[in-house]
């Protein structure tokens, strides 16, 4: 194995032999990695293997003996998958923009020494500790006439209080001098926020944009509670239905009989793959942002 010596830290200088302990540790870590990855691989396997072949298979399957794409064809023929994708994309974009706008504005405001800062801070944090619960929330949504609309899928999410506080802390940790000199030049608060503070915080903002996007992508709870029309369902709720009972989709827009070798298991698994496709494709490239942001914000100051 090629070793990049520049990355070896001095703390290991006396231990640079790859000993038995290292071997055992690496083995355990790799094993855990495989335990994480294998279930996903198995989902792919089942989605491309004809059910009859899979049913007769004994023991571990590491490679599909025969590959068919019929399950994917069925999945993509379902209008539910398409409408689910459309709805999820809409709420992910609108919702993330809405979340980020509210979060950034409030985060910046909280760094200022205005009268009432402590009260506002308290009002923002208190809901982390106490909430109204399911029924009052349900009645509220009913009164707001949000039931069975696409708005209910992201409007109630507002801000994630933890993200707001982390971002606010980060803004507060930026040097005041930049802001002061801009203020002397007559820049307004909005201008300072957008032209000075935000450009300095891009990696952090990227991280929290991703976190919000993932939350919106994974939305199912509000849809389950409030959205009765199937055509407004986000992807997760479509997936829930498919996993629990594939007949809903089978009756939806699939011409003729479902062929015998495409039974529910393949379709469930191909639907899982289809619904996590964007995540699978983006995650390896954006992992730096997925992994870094929290520590960035919390350790500062």
């Amino acid at each position: 194995m090629k070793r990049d010596t520049s990355t070896i830290r001095p703390r290991h200088s006396r231990l640079n032999r790859f000993g038995v302990v290292d071997f055992v540790l690496s083995a355990i870590l790799i094993l855990f990695g495989l335990m994480i990855l294998y279930p996903f691989w198995n989902v792919i396997l089942v989605s491309v293997t004809p059910t009859t072949v899979y049913a007769q298979h004994r023991g571990m399957m590491l490679w599909p003996p025969k590959i068919i794409w019929d399950a994917y064809k069925t999945t993509f023929r379902s209008s539910l998958i398409w409408s689910g994708y459309r709805n999820t994309i809409i709420i992910t974009f609108l919702g993330t923009a809405y979340n980020m706008a509210l979060t950034i504005l409030a985060a910046y405001a909280l760094t200022k020494d205005f009268i009432g800062n402590r009260v506002v801070r308290f009002l923002i944090i208190f809901p982390l500790y106490f909430s109204g619960g399911l029924i009052p929330y349900y009645l509220l949504i009913q009164d707001l006439r949000l039931i069975n609309t696409i708005w209910v899928l992201f409007l109630p999410t507002g801000v994630n209080i933890m993200y707001l506080l982390i971002i606010s802390n980060y803004f507060a940790s930026l040097p005041d001098a930049l802001e002061d000199s801009a203020r002397i030049d007559g820049a307004s608060d909005f201008r300072i926020l957008f032209q000075i503070i935000l450009p300095l915080s891009l990696p952090l903002l990227a991280t929290f944009t991703l976190y919000y996007a993932v939350e919106r992508w994974n939305e199912w709870y509000n849809a389950m509670l409030f959205v009765k029309s199937v055509s407004l369902w986000p992807l997760q709720n479509v997936l829930r239905t498919i996993i629990n009972d594939v007949t809903v989709m089978a009756s939806q827009n699939i011409p003729g009989q479902v062929r015998p070798d495409i039974a529910s298991d393949n379709i469930k698994m191909s639907s899982i793959i289809v619904s996590m496709l964007p995540m699978m494709m983006l995650y390896p490239f954006l992992q730096r942002y997925f992994l870094s942001g929290l520590t960035l914000g919390a350790v500062k100051e």
Binding site: A101, L102, T103, L105, A106, Y108, A109, L110, K112, F114, V120, L123, I124, P127, F130, S131, G132, G133, I135, P136, Y137, L139, L140, L144, L155, P156, G158, V159, L164, S188, D189, F190, L193
Partner: peptide, 24 residues
């Protein structure tokens, strides 16, 4: 302008977090 900036967030938090507390 700082008050203006935080107003939308406070309104959203008030509606979706505090009004349900009244329902308790």
């Amino acid at each position: 302008w700082i008050y203006v900036m935080m107003l939308p967030t406070l309104i959203v938090i008030f509606i979706f977090r505090y009004i349900p507390m009244y329902g308790l």
